[in-house]
Measured scan of single mutants.
Amino acid sequence: TTLHFDLDGKKLQYTGVSEEIARLVEELKRRGVDLKEIVRILEELLK
């Protein structure tokens, strides 16, 4: 799965993300978590 974000005018793309992580990101968005925080979490998970 590939995730795309537009953060402060920067286009971020994460490829090869598992379905689980993609679902987690969608859930965080639904809960109103700040996009910067979501990206920070995502980068930690993908290390």
Rank of each mutant, 00 (worst) to 15 (best):
T1Y: 15
T1G: 10
T1P: 06
T2P: 03
T2E: 08
T2C: 05
L3F: 04
L3D: 02
L3Q: 02
H4R: 05
H4C: 03
H4T: 15
D6F: 09
D6K: 02
D6L: 07
L7P: 00
L7H: 05
L7I: 14
D8I: 01
D8M: 03
D8T: 01
D8C: 04
D8N: 06
D8V: 01
G9K: 02
G9D: 09
G9Q: 02
G9F: 03
K10C: 05
K11T: 13
K11I: 11
K11G: 07
K11W: 12
K11A: 11
L12R: 02
Q13C: 06
Q13A: 12
Q13D: 09
Q13P: 02
Q13W: 09
Q13I: 12
Y14D: 00
Y14H: 01
Y14Q: 00
Y14I: 05
Y14A: 01
T15I: 10
T15P: 10
T15G: 07
V17K: 01
V17Q: 02
V17P: 01
V17I: 09
V17H: 01
S18W: 02
S18K: 07
S18I: 04
E19P: 10
E19M: 13
E19Y: 10
E19H: 14
E20M: 05
E20I: 05
E20P: 11
E20D: 12
E20C: 06
I21C: 03
A22Y: 13
R23W: 10
R23Y: 13
R23P: 02
L24N: 12
L24T: 15
L24V: 11
V25I: 11
V25F: 04
V25E: 00
V25T: 05
V25N: 01
V25W: 01
V25L: 06
E26Q: 10
E26F: 10
E26Y: 09
E26C: 05
E26R: 06
E27V: 08
E27T: 10
E27Y: 05
E27C: 05
L28N: 03
L28D: 01
L28K: 04
L28H: 08
K29M: 14
K29P: 02
R30I: 13
R31A: 11
R31S: 13
R31V: 14
G32V: 04
V33G: 04
V33C: 04
V33A: 07
D34L: 08
D34R: 05
L35Y: 06
L35R: 04
K36V: 12
K36Q: 13
K36D: 08
K36M: 12
E37M: 07
I38N: 00
I38K: 00
I38V: 11
V39R: 03
V39W: 02
V39Y: 02
R40I: 08
R40F: 14
R40Y: 14
R40K: 15
I41A: 09
I41S: 06
I41Y: 09
I41M: 09
L42K: 00
L42A: 03
L42R: 00
L42I: 07
L42C: 04
L42W: 00
E43P: 02
E43N: 08
E43F: 02
E44K: 07
E44D: 13
E44V: 09
L45D: 04
L46M: 08
L46E: 03
L46Q: 04
L46A: 03
K47Y: 14
K47V: 13
K47L: 12
